[in-house]
Write a protein that binds this DNA or RNA. Structure first.
Lengths: 111, 111
DNA sequence: GTAATATACCTAGCGGTGCTATGTATATTG
DNA sequence: CAATATACATAGCACCGCTAGGTATATTAC
């Protein structure tokens, strides 16, 4: 068993990571997983491969994202590019609203 | 299976609820579960009994909270009052720091 | 007097996700 | 040709929010 704080940090990331990923994909319009991992590291939001790839696959299955393999003009391993579906854009909008609502409550309690 | 957004809302509440509960207990110094449920409702952060009570018990077991039964001067069912332990105060401090760090990242992506 | 309501706490079990650990494949560099 | 960098994938564990029930005491309604 890991310590209390470490476990809590894993819990609070639930849902939050998904929100951040969707916002980043919207920002870049289209991006592949490995690149996303680097962008996440740059903004101090490190994420494990074993967390990101299953998340991206799940969101694709659920039609929140659409995925396109890119093999041409690419040296090395082929890349899978993700972008938001129309449904994903709508979902992200509602998720952001809920996040902001929750943060407002946090700040109301904190002050 | 519930819809995507409903499930996501349950996920993003993980850890966040624990943080809010600890902040509220600190604010009121000592409070019992049922009262906490009402205070949560007042600030539009409704929580189910089946979520709150196991959470309070877990945090008590983990020495984050201390619990005291109060039977005197109380009509009806006895009440269990909770307050933060020294360890709980320290933990809450670190949890708030992490939450704020995460919210900063959210805002950096959002703008 | 007893049925209904309000107050107050509790628990078994389900479902979903972040992480660990490991695996696969291609191209470049030493 | 071994090592490294790039790139994606998955099985399984641990944990927590919620559902759906339950117990117990005191007051109010009829």
């Amino acid at each position: 068993m890991v310590d209390y704080l470490t476990n809590w940090k894993a819990q609070i990331r639930r849902g939050y990571l998904e929100l951040c990923i969707l916002m980043l994909i919207q920002k870049y319009e289209r991006i592949y997983g490995f690149d996303l991992l680097e962008k996440l590291k740059e903004i101090d939001l490190e994420m494990k491969e074993g967390t990101l790839y299953p998340l991206l696959n799940r969101m694709t299955t659920d039609k929140v994202l659409k995925a396109v393999w890119e093999t041409e003009n690419v040296k090395g391993h082929p890349r899978k590019f993700y972008s938001l579906t129309k449904e994903g854009i709508k979902l992200l909008h509602e998720m952001k609203n809920e996040y902001i609502r929750m943060n407002d409550i946090f700040e109301k309690i904190a002050k």
